[in-house]
Amino acid sequence: MKLFRVLTTTGLAVACALASGPALAFPSHERHWEYYADASLSTLVGGREMDCFGDVYVWGQQGPYQVLVYEFPCDPEGPIQP
């Protein structure tokens, strides 16, 4: 009976570990982009930010005319400010 309980418990632990899938990695940098209406980069139409925890914030419109405004390296406590 003890052997059955040990095998069942071990089997459940292995099944749970396999079912959870691979761990997700956090981004290496916090980044902020701004989007413009055209190639002159004179009219701001939107923005996007990805923080060190993988959260993405978007506002306005996105398009091909973009500028990376800032990029900070991440550490476990959050972005490292220069």
Rank of each mutant, 00 (worst) to 15 (best):
F4Y: 15
W59C: 06
A13L: 12
E71T: 12
E49C: 11
I80Q: 10
G60K: 04
A25G: 10
S40L: 08
V56P: 05
G60H: 00
F26I: 06
W59G: 08
G78D: 04
H29I: 03
G47S: 13
R31E: 13
F72C: 05
A37S: 02
V45I: 10
R5D: 15
L44I: 04
G54A: 02
F26Q: 13
D51V: 01
F26L: 13
G78Q: 00
Q61K: 11
F72W: 13
V56M: 05
C74P: 03
D51W: 04
L68A: 06
L68K: 03
T9H: 14
Q66M: 12
C16L: 15
P82S: 01
Y57Q: 13
A37H: 05
P79N: 00
Y35Q: 02
Q81M: 13
S20G: 14
Q66G: 11
R31C: 05
V67I: 09
Q66T: 10
Y35V: 01
F26K: 12
V67Y: 08
G47Q: 09
R48C: 11
L12A: 06
Y57C: 07
V58H: 06
G63L: 00
V56L: 03
T8E: 12
R48W: 10
L12Y: 00
L7K: 00
S42L: 11
A23H: 13
Y35F: 10
L68M: 02
V67E: 09
A19W: 14
R48E: 10
